[in-house]
């Protein structure tokens, strides 16, 4: 067992855990953050995507023992109460959600993209979410939502 300290959704947290526990299990089991989903366990589907030091990573491939000092953000950190993040709102307005299982990871990949590249073109959007498999939507409405969010945020920042 190790005593692990890291930053989770903006707050400093500490937890006693085995070092080999995967980040996804730590989030779901120790912190009750079940918005992070498991789809494959081998880093292929992206359902478990979280932000680690602002970058999108598969939380099924990060071990607790590797976390010390890291900053982790999950889907639960995006909305402020009932106030959705523009990405979340645009996902709803554009019909980008069907079963919703890939949605948290998808939104976080999009979030990381816009953080790094506020005006992505279509190819860049596709590349950013290529590691997030969705079986329901065919991706179109997801890409529309991301584009709309970029436009919205850019027009606000002008």
């Amino acid at each position: 067992m190790i005593n692990l300290k890291f930053k989770l959704n903006g707050e400093k947290v500490s937890v006693k855990t085995e070092a080999g526990v995967r980040l996804i299990d730590l989030l779901r089991n120790n912190f009750g953050l079940t918005g992070t989903k498991e789809g494959c366990g081998v880093g292929e589907c992206g359902a478990c995507t979280v932000l680690m030091n602002k970058k999108a990573v598969n939380s099924c491939l990060v071990l607790a023992g590797q976390l010390a000092g890291a900053s982790i953000e999950t889907i639960e950190s995006l909305a402020e109460g009932e106030m959705l993040h523009p990405l979340q709102r645009n996902f709803l307005e554009h019909g980008a959600v069907q079963c919703g299982y890939c949605t948290p990871g998808m939104i976080l990949s999009a979030y990381a993209l816009l953080d790094e590249n506020p005006s992505p073109d279509e190819e860049e959007i596709k590349e950013a979410i290529a590691g997030n498999l969705c079986r329901c939507t065919g991706y179109k409405q997801i890409m529309d939502s991301i584009k709309a969010t970029a436009d919205e945020l850019n027009s606000k920042n002008k």
Partner: peptide, 9 residues
């Protein structure tokens, strides 16, 4: 190689 998530790690 892989996806953005993979390449980040």
């Amino acid at each position: 190689i892989g996806s953005v998530q993979i390449r980040n790690r």
